[in-house]
Design a binder for these strands. Structure first.
Lengths: 367, 367
DNA sequence: TTTCGTTCGTATAGTCTCCGAACGATGGCG
DNA sequence: CGCCATCGTTCGGAGACTATACGAACGAAA
């Protein structure tokens, strides 16, 4: 076992390139990754054996021998789960980025017992897993998105809008009817939505941005150098509690004038005030991190285009570097399922980072 | 040439381990890096040939054959340069982290012509380079710390406390009397101070923290996963312009109530107000990034211990996660030369990241 | 003072993976 | 129908690491 497993790294490189750039011939992969055709052939053979990719029919048209494109297959999937104030949901996402199935239950979970909500989650999970079974897919694992502060073990400290405090979500497999070996992580929904934005949204072309999702609360996820910032305790991204007005109204968190008190979905505030508050909060973010862009998601994306433009203009005027390199403010194209998709993406990312975790199908394996 | 150069990576791994953990035998290195004794021997031989490390005398005492420790040598160095409102300075730092020489010129550079200040910098640079020559050291390159907004090419947009605007610092070699091939980068002084803190200060034990340096202005550098956050344009870390009091006094940057207007070194404010302002700013930082610690540097470190404690207490009370995982506030042990040391560290880091950039000494080279 | 046991560092053979070059495969084009 | 551009495979060789064995050096104990 090598300390630095070259093969593993190159398998990941090729698979990642296919996921990002679409179907490609071995020759094209060789040129684009810098590897040799011979090496790429060997790597592709390995990925084929694991059913991570599949061969397309050779397509001619150009001069020379027709190329046979290699495409990411749809047989390896991951499970995305979400608990929110008004619903629970589960989805099945494949490596290619397609949603294979989706189940949800609406409801008002504020003040509901965690056990009750988790029972609903168990139901949608079972439905999703049944779909996976029926279609004979291989599931790499999953993640659960929660609207609150969780550490990496799954200890949920507080979810203000669910009114939950100190809920133990560590090792949730049994309560979700999943096998104990099923890999599952728990993370903040804003972080996961940012991950979805990074892989499937506007973030595909960016290496550092801040995603801000509006809902009942306001959450954010920062992506720096293509990596989600989770923080020392997993608490990063609580942009909703950045103070924009020290003399403002009291927030559920205890202090006054949090961003969330102005732009939370249930607050009735004018478009102008929302833009002011967002600009004040982002001003701090831009000064601290200098991201390539700020991306508005959730209810903030659905709002008028004007808000994004107004915020961008304010940022250009009031940030130190805005005069030379203004920070663009973009609206996310991902819908309300961003966090759900992001949750599944966690496990998909694990597969792409180490394709050898997917077993080699004995039937497909070349002698 | 491999796409993934294993040898290069392992050379870096061993050298980095030696730099971080101090002198060690080959056997200890093997155990701690996970490599084999044989491999470590080969790697150490390579590092010896490049004069990056040196053998110590075998020391017994314990049972068994005495180990010969390998120590980072002092013959490979880098140049650190700094322009500030009240001085220019140059230092020579070796890989082991020792300052080999240091030269500076005091003065008041506000409103001084950039050319005049650069001439002073040329002088101290020449003195430092002469020291390198005299001691027969090998210099890997250098960096220049400036108190303002610069992009990665060296274009300085604004340095508020120098009253500089749009100064071209790209390719500064000729103006500093350095050979054109001498690798030199220009970066913000707070980012570089944070780098110094990461390598030589409290940050050695941390992977993510925010360093805040007080001076005439207030600058910050964020370290996430052991990497400095420079931002899309190199503008990250302008914590001095986070608003802590929307109705406060007007700042040099144009807006009101920036942190800098309260805690800048030339402002006369009470310890209590400073702590309040810092806590308000850090509150946003902690909510956004959830760092392992906040480190106070520059004039903020020299101030009373009380400030750090007061700020930490405020953060514990007013951050969402403070109740479960309070963010510590620490005082930096690095003195006013933090940015200068950080500048040299840039080039040192390059050497550690790829030790093959240092030529093999033909005399030392084993046949 | 001799012998044993322990630890350090080196030498050698084997394995993994990549690269380079040559070669067969395939199909457009004249 | 032959030419040729391009695709993908095969095969030998090189680089780097691992495992194992071995010599070197020294403390401890008889």
């Amino acid at each position: 076992m090598g300390l630095l497993d070259v093969r593993r790294h190159h398998l990941s490189l090729v698979l990642d390139h296919l996921v990002r750039s679409g179907p490609r011939s071995r020759a094209a992969l060789a040129q684009e990754t810098g590897l040799t055709k011979a090496t790429v052939s060997a790597l592709v053979a390995d990925l084929l054996a694991r059913q991570l990719v599949e061969e397309r029919e050779p397509v001619g048209g150009r001069i020379g021998r027709p190329a046979t494109d290699i495409a990411v297959s749809h047989t390896v999937v991951a499970l995305g789960l979400q608990v929110d104030a008004d619903r629970v949901a589960a989805c099945v996402l494949d490596i290619a980025g397609d949603i294979r199935s989706r189940h949800s239950r609406g409801g008002d979970h504020r003040d509901a017992e965690p056990a009750t909500v988790l029972e609903l989650l168990r139901e949608v999970t079972a439905e999703a897993m049944a779909d996976i079974e029926a279609a004979d897919l291989w599931c790499a694992g999953g993640a659960l998105a929660v609207p609150g502060l969780v550490d990496e073990t799954g200890e949920l400290f507080v979810a203000a809008n669910l009114h939950w405090l100190d809920v133990d979500l560590t090792a949730p497999q049994s309560r979700l009817g999943l096998p104990p070996s099923f890999p599952i992580v728990v993370d903040n929904e804003a972080n996961l939505a940012a991950l979805a934005e990074l892989r499937h949204g506007l973030g595909r072309d960016l290496t550092s941005f801040v995603y801000v999702s509006g809902g009942v609360g306001v959450g954010a996820g920062a992506v720096i150098d293509g990596r989600i910032v989770r923080g020392a305790n997993g608490f990063a991204g609580e942009l909703g509690h950045v103070v924009v007005d020290p003399s403002g109204v009291r927030c559920a968190c205890g202090t006054r004038g949090c961003l969330e008190t102005v732009v939370g979905a249930r607050r009735r505030t004018s478009s102008a005030r929302r833009a002011d508050a967002l600009a004040a909060a982002f001003r701090n973010v831009v000064h601290l991190l200098d991201p390539e862009a700020v991306i508005l998601g959730g209810s903030l994306a659905a709002g008028d285009e004007e808000i994004a433009d107004a915020v961008a203009e304010r940022l250009r005027e009031t940030t130190l570097g805005g005069r030379w390199r203004p920070c663009p403010v973009l609206g996310s194209a991902l819908g309300p399922d961003a966090a759900l998709i992001g949750a599944a993406t966690v496990a998909i990312d694990d597969v792409i980072a180490d394709p050898t975790t997917v077993p080699v199908d004995p039937l497909t394996q070349t002698a």
